[in-house]
Amino acid sequence: MAINLQKGQKVDLTKGNANLKQVLVGLGWDTNKYDGGADFDLDASAFLCDANGKVQSDADFVFYGNQKHASGSVWSHGDNLTGAGDGDDEQISVVLEKVPANVQKIAFTVTIYEPEKRGQNFGMVSNAFVRIADEITNQELIRYDLGEDFSVQTAVVVGELYRQGAEWKFNAIGSGFSGGLAALCKNFGVNV
Protein backbone atom coordinates (compact mmCIF):
# COMPACT_ATOMS: atom_id res chain seq x y z
CA MET A 1 0.00 0.00 0.00
CA ALA A 2 1.53 3.26 -1.10
CA ILE A 3 1.82 6.09 1.36
CA ASN A 4 0.41 9.44 0.32
CA LEU A 5 3.13 11.51 1.89
CA GLN A 6 2.56 14.89 3.37
CA LYS A 7 4.75 17.68 2.18
CA GLY A 8 8.03 17.62 4.13
CA GLN A 9 7.52 14.16 5.55
CA LYS A 10 10.61 11.97 5.74
CA VAL A 11 10.52 8.19 5.62
CA ASP A 12 13.05 5.38 5.82
CA LEU A 13 13.46 3.46 2.61
CA THR A 14 16.22 0.92 3.16
CA LYS A 15 16.09 0.78 6.94
CA GLY A 16 14.08 -2.29 7.81
CA ASN A 17 13.76 -2.96 4.11
CA ALA A 18 17.24 -4.20 3.22
CA ASN A 19 15.95 -5.83 0.06
CA LEU A 20 15.30 -2.48 -1.56
CA LYS A 21 18.04 -2.32 -4.20
CA GLN A 22 16.47 -0.53 -7.09
CA VAL A 23 14.05 2.38 -6.94
CA LEU A 24 11.68 3.28 -9.77
CA VAL A 25 10.23 6.75 -10.14
CA GLY A 26 7.16 6.60 -12.34
CA LEU A 27 5.30 9.56 -13.81
CA GLY A 28 1.94 9.32 -15.52
CA TRP A 29 -0.66 11.66 -16.97
CA ASP A 30 -3.56 11.74 -19.43
CA THR A 31 -3.37 13.16 -22.94
CA ASN A 32 -4.91 16.53 -23.72
CA LYS A 33 -8.51 15.84 -24.73
CA TYR A 34 -9.26 19.39 -25.79
CA ASP A 35 -8.69 20.98 -29.18
CA GLY A 36 -6.77 24.21 -29.63
CA GLY A 37 -4.03 23.44 -27.11
CA ALA A 38 -0.78 21.56 -27.56
CA ASP A 39 -0.01 18.08 -26.28
CA PHE A 40 0.93 17.79 -22.62
CA ASP A 41 4.59 16.80 -22.46
CA LEU A 42 5.64 16.13 -18.88
CA ASP A 43 9.23 15.22 -18.10
CA ALA A 44 10.71 13.36 -15.16
CA SER A 45 14.27 14.31 -14.29
CA ALA A 46 16.81 13.53 -11.59
CA PHE A 47 19.49 15.78 -10.11
CA LEU A 48 22.39 13.94 -8.44
CA CYS A 49 23.52 16.39 -5.79
CA ASP A 50 26.36 16.80 -3.33
CA ALA A 51 26.01 17.68 0.34
CA ASN A 52 25.23 21.30 -0.64
CA GLY A 53 22.28 20.33 -2.77
CA LYS A 54 24.05 21.17 -6.05
CA VAL A 55 25.15 19.04 -8.97
CA GLN A 56 28.91 18.75 -9.35
CA SER A 57 28.70 18.89 -13.10
CA ASP A 58 25.98 19.16 -15.71
CA ALA A 59 26.44 15.41 -16.31
CA ASP A 60 24.82 14.81 -12.90
CA PHE A 61 21.52 15.99 -14.32
CA VAL A 62 19.63 13.03 -15.83
CA PHE A 63 16.80 14.08 -18.13
CA TYR A 64 15.50 13.62 -21.70
CA GLY A 65 18.71 15.17 -23.05
CA ASN A 66 21.04 12.99 -20.92
CA GLN A 67 19.21 9.77 -20.28
CA LYS A 68 21.90 7.84 -18.40
CA HIS A 69 24.29 8.85 -15.65
CA ALA A 70 27.93 7.89 -16.27
CA SER A 71 27.97 5.77 -13.10
CA GLY A 72 25.15 3.61 -14.45
CA SER A 73 23.23 4.23 -11.23
CA VAL A 74 20.47 6.43 -12.61
CA TRP A 75 18.77 6.29 -16.00
CA SER A 76 15.63 7.46 -17.69
CA HIS A 77 13.57 4.97 -19.66
CA GLY A 78 12.70 7.48 -22.35
CA ASP A 79 10.77 10.59 -23.19
CA ASN A 80 6.98 10.34 -23.65
CA LEU A 81 5.74 13.42 -25.51
CA THR A 82 1.97 13.12 -25.05
CA GLY A 83 0.97 10.98 -22.06
CA ALA A 84 -0.61 8.34 -24.31
CA GLY A 85 -0.98 4.92 -22.70
CA ASP A 86 -1.93 3.60 -19.27
CA GLY A 87 0.22 3.50 -16.15
CA ASP A 88 3.60 5.20 -16.02
CA ASP A 89 4.37 7.34 -19.04
CA GLU A 90 7.95 8.08 -17.99
CA GLN A 91 10.23 6.22 -15.61
CA ILE A 92 13.60 6.73 -13.96
CA SER A 93 15.50 3.89 -12.30
CA VAL A 94 18.03 4.17 -9.49
CA VAL A 95 20.33 1.33 -8.45
CA LEU A 96 21.17 2.41 -4.93
CA GLU A 97 24.50 0.64 -4.51
CA LYS A 98 25.87 2.09 -7.74
CA VAL A 99 25.25 5.69 -6.72
CA PRO A 100 28.69 7.41 -6.47
CA ALA A 101 29.80 8.12 -2.92
CA ASN A 102 29.95 11.88 -3.49
CA VAL A 103 26.26 11.98 -4.35
CA GLN A 104 24.45 12.66 -1.10
CA LYS A 105 20.98 13.03 -2.52
CA ILE A 106 19.04 12.56 -5.70
CA ALA A 107 16.24 15.00 -6.29
CA PHE A 108 13.37 13.96 -8.57
CA THR A 109 11.43 16.54 -10.45
CA VAL A 110 8.51 16.71 -12.82
CA THR A 111 8.21 19.58 -15.25
CA ILE A 112 6.05 20.60 -18.15
CA TYR A 113 7.93 21.05 -21.40
CA GLU A 114 7.69 24.58 -22.87
CA PRO A 115 5.02 25.69 -20.38
CA GLU A 116 4.97 29.36 -21.38
CA LYS A 117 4.95 28.70 -25.10
CA ARG A 118 2.18 26.14 -24.76
CA GLY A 119 0.35 28.06 -22.03
CA GLN A 120 0.17 25.02 -19.78
CA ASN A 121 0.34 24.12 -16.10
CA PHE A 122 -0.27 21.06 -13.93
CA GLY A 123 -3.87 22.02 -13.25
CA MET A 124 -4.71 21.53 -16.91
CA VAL A 125 -3.31 18.03 -16.94
CA SER A 126 -5.66 15.26 -15.88
CA ASN A 127 -4.65 12.42 -13.59
CA ALA A 128 -0.99 13.41 -13.31
CA PHE A 129 0.80 11.43 -10.64
CA VAL A 130 4.27 10.48 -9.59
CA ARG A 131 4.99 7.33 -7.67
CA ILE A 132 8.03 5.75 -6.15
CA ALA A 133 8.28 2.01 -6.19
CA ASP A 134 10.63 -0.85 -5.47
CA GLU A 135 11.52 -1.78 -9.04
CA ILE A 136 12.34 -5.38 -8.18
CA THR A 137 9.11 -6.21 -6.36
CA ASN A 138 7.09 -3.49 -8.13
CA GLN A 139 5.69 -2.52 -4.74
CA GLU A 140 4.57 1.09 -4.69
CA LEU A 141 6.05 3.07 -1.81
CA ILE A 142 4.98 6.64 -2.29
CA ARG A 143 2.47 8.39 -4.50
CA TYR A 144 1.65 12.03 -5.34
CA ASP A 145 -1.27 13.48 -7.18
CA LEU A 146 0.17 16.39 -9.16
CA GLY A 147 -3.01 17.81 -10.64
CA GLU A 148 -4.79 18.55 -7.38
CA ASP A 149 -1.77 19.76 -5.45
CA PHE A 150 0.05 21.92 -7.95
CA SER A 151 -2.57 23.62 -10.12
CA VAL A 152 -0.93 26.57 -11.88
CA GLN A 153 2.71 25.55 -11.30
CA THR A 154 4.88 24.13 -14.07
CA ALA A 155 7.67 22.43 -12.11
CA VAL A 156 7.62 20.28 -9.00
CA VAL A 157 10.43 18.95 -6.86
CA VAL A 158 8.68 15.75 -5.93
CA GLY A 159 11.17 14.62 -3.32
CA GLU A 160 14.67 13.45 -2.76
CA LEU A 161 16.42 10.23 -1.96
CA TYR A 162 19.16 11.03 0.54
CA ARG A 163 21.81 9.18 2.47
CA GLN A 164 21.82 8.93 6.21
CA GLY A 165 24.86 6.91 7.14
CA ALA A 166 24.58 3.66 5.26
CA GLU A 167 20.82 4.01 4.76
CA TRP A 168 18.70 5.77 2.16
CA LYS A 169 15.74 7.86 3.17
CA PHE A 170 13.13 9.79 1.24
CA ASN A 171 12.07 13.35 1.84
CA ALA A 172 8.73 14.33 0.34
CA ILE A 173 9.52 17.88 -0.64
CA GLY A 174 6.53 18.56 -2.87
CA SER A 175 7.45 22.12 -3.79
CA GLY A 176 5.93 23.68 -6.85
CA PHE A 177 7.68 26.30 -8.96
CA SER A 178 6.86 28.40 -11.93
CA GLY A 179 9.37 28.54 -14.77
CA GLY A 180 9.58 24.89 -15.70
CA LEU A 181 12.77 22.89 -15.91
CA ALA A 182 14.98 25.94 -16.44
CA ALA A 183 14.05 27.27 -13.01
CA LEU A 184 14.91 23.94 -11.41
CA CYS A 185 18.26 23.68 -13.21
CA LYS A 186 19.20 27.04 -11.80
CA ASN A 187 18.17 25.88 -8.35
CA PHE A 188 20.35 22.77 -8.56
CA GLY A 189 23.34 24.47 -10.18
CA VAL A 190 23.02 23.18 -13.73
CA ASN A 191 24.16 25.60 -16.44
CA VAL A 192 21.46 26.14 -19.01
Partner: peptide, 8 residues
Protein backbone atom coordinates in the same frame (compact mmCIF):
# COMPACT_ATOMS: atom_id res chain seq x y z
CA UNK B 1 -9.11 32.12 -12.23
CA UNK B 2 -6.76 31.20 -15.01
CA UNK B 3 -6.65 28.09 -17.17
CA UNK B 4 -5.59 25.17 -15.02
CA UNK B 5 -6.59 26.75 -11.72
CA UNK B 6 -7.71 24.12 -9.23
CA UNK B 7 -8.70 24.49 -5.62
CA UNK B 8 -10.97 23.18 -2.95
Amino acid sequence: MQRGFRDK
